[in-house]
Amino acid sequence: MYTQALNANPDADAPQLEDAALLARFEARVADEARIEPNDFMPAAYRRTLTRQISQHAHSEIIGMQPEGNWITRAPSLRRKAALLAKVQDECGHGLYLYAAAETLGTSREELVDQLLSGKAKYSSIFNYPTQTWADIGAIGWLVDGAAIMNQIPLCRCSYGPYARAMIRVCKEESFHQRQGYEIMLTLARGSAEQKEMAQDALNRWWWPSLMMFGPPDAASAHSDTSMCWKIKRFSNDELRQKFVDATVPQAHFLGLTLPDPDLVFDEAAGHWRYGTIDWEEFKQVVAGNGPCNRDRLATRRKAHEDGAWVREAARAFAEKRAAAKTAAAA
């Protein structure tokens, strides 16, 4: 989910010459479900792929604050506003836990942040869509956080210790996010005709992009094999996507809403909801930077970073002044 664009350059991770004995021991530990910690030996490709995945996961959380933050001042009640504010604060917190995990692999926090600001790093495609109505906030909590939870629970058992532990913490906090979203959808669906229509419209716009969150179909994912071997990825994109669909379709039916998929049908024999064709061209465009909000998201993040520069500088200058005064007093 956080490496949606990684398949683009499979040669970048060609196997490197590494001590065969160390490599064998590493692979045995991973196969044994042992956790790899920051000071343990790990192949360069493992370190690289994890640095990218964890940092892109972190970037996604930070950027994800924007589409929802957009509605904080316009939430329909105090309760909704407090809940949304708490959710957005949580997303910030999740981003920070993830940066803390990513930097244990050797790339500094500042470098990781710079990769996002410079446009070098990716973040989850879903956050490049606009939140046009209050119902979008319900749809995001229900579908986007729902999809994220599907992906994050297996990551709690990822082979890299710091990432797994960050995920455990995140998952504990994440369940309120989905419930908050579903509660909004429920309230709208049971409200006036206009409110129900608004909920339906939001579902129509967020359904397919949420399915795309899981990444390209397995047949098109050249990269997944190493990630699976190294127990970074536990389930394939299609497996997780199917799990999400199976869980969510009944939830939509309970709301009395229609899913924007005329081909959706229940396969009795297999016990799965079969869904229609995903528009992978749209996905490609959004990942490449041509989604509705890509430029806005990055511009907003850059501005926030620049506007906050004086605070960072002041904090640093003050800390240095205090440290110098302390040393002088001790002398």
Partner: peptide, 8 residues
Amino acid sequence: MVDATTPL
């Protein structure tokens, strides 16, 4: 431009 580092 990468920021100066802050203590961990």
